[in-house]
Amino acid sequence: MGIFDRLKKVVKANKNANVKPQDERNIFNLKVGDIVSIEDVDYEVKGVMKLNDSGWKWTEYKIKDARQTYWLSVEEDDEIEISLSHKVTAITTEPPKKYEYEGVTYYMQEGSEAVVEDVSGKINVSKGDRVDYYEYSDSDDEKLLSIEIWDGQVEMSKGRWIETFEIEIFPGS
C-alpha cells in the first residue's frame, strides 16, 4: 500500500470529523500538498497560480503524479470548466489562428494577456508577472492546446477537458 492509498484511507475515516464548511477543500481552493485523484490517478498539488485577465479570473494548479508534471486549470464561466494538460515541446513562436500539432488541427478559441495575482508552491513565476496566452481546441472541442508567452519564452501544452465527477480531493493538511 502506497502513501497516497494510506492518506486516502485516513481522509475517508475522518470524513465525519468536525470540519467547518469553509474549510472543506474543493476544486477552487486546493492547497500545496493536497492530493487530487483524477480517473483513479493520484496527483499531488505542487503549486497554485491565480491569474486575472481584465477581471476574468482562473486558477492553475501544478500537479504531479509518479511520472510527470501536469496543469489542472479551473475556471467558472457559465459552468465550471476544468482541463488537465501537460507541457510539450513548443514548435512555434507566433500563435496562429489554426495550428496543426501531432496530426490534429487546433483552432484558436481565445487569446489575451493575464497577470499573476497570487502564487504559492513550486512555480517559477512571481506575483505581477504577465503572460500572453492563446487557447485552442480541435473541431470536436475534446483536445486542447495552449500557447503561453512568458517574457518572450514560449511554453506549449496539450490536454483535455475533465468533468467534476472524475475528481476526488484529499486534503494534505
Rank of each mutant, 00 (worst) to 15 (best):
M1T: 11
G2C: 11
I3E: 14
F4M: 03
D5K: 08
R6F: 12
L7M: 05
K8Y: 09
V10Y: 11
V10I: 15
V10H: 02
V11S: 11
K12H: 10
N14A: 13
K15D: 03
K15Q: 08
N16Y: 13
P21F: 00
Q22Y: 12
D23P: 06
E24N: 02
E24Q: 07
R25K: 15
R25I: 07
N26D: 15
N26Q: 06
N26H: 10
N26R: 05
I27E: 01
L30E: 10
L30V: 09
K31Y: 06
V32R: 00
G33F: 03
G33P: 03
G33Q: 00
D34F: 06
V36F: 05
S37C: 15
I38Q: 02
I38L: 06
D40A: 10
V41W: 03
V45I: 15
V45K: 05
K46D: 07
G47W: 10
M49K: 04
M49I: 14
M49W: 01
K50T: 13
K50L: 13
D53G: 09
S54P: 04
S54T: 08
G55Y: 02
W56F: 15
W56N: 14
W58I: 07
T59H: 05
T59R: 10
T59Y: 08
K62S: 13
K62C: 08
K62M: 09
I63F: 08
K64S: 14
D65Q: 08
W71M: 04
E75F: 06
E75K: 14
E76P: 04
E76Y: 15
I80Q: 06
E81C: 12
E81S: 12
I82V: 15
I82D: 02
S83V: 08
S83Y: 01
S85C: 08
S85E: 11
H86Y: 08
K87T: 12
K87Y: 05
T89C: 03
I91C: 14
I91H: 09
T93A: 05
E94G: 02
P96I: 07
K98D: 14
Y101S: 05
E102L: 06
G103V: 12
G103L: 11
V104L: 01
V104K: 02
V104Y: 00
T105Q: 09
T105D: 12
Y107R: 00
M108N: 07
Q109T: 14
S112T: 11
E113Q: 13
E113G: 05
A114C: 14
V115S: 06
V119T: 06
G121K: 04
G121R: 04
V125F: 03
G128Q: 00
D129N: 05
D129I: 01
R130D: 00
D132L: 13
D138F: 02
S139A: 15
D140M: 09
D141T: 12
E142S: 09
E142Y: 02
L145I: 07
L145Y: 03
L145N: 04
S146Q: 00
I147R: 03
E148P: 04
E148T: 01
G152I: 10
E155R: 04
M156Q: 03
M156D: 03
S157D: 10
I162P: 02
I162Y: 03
E163H: 09
E163N: 13
T164K: 15
F165N: 13
F165T: 06
G172K: 01
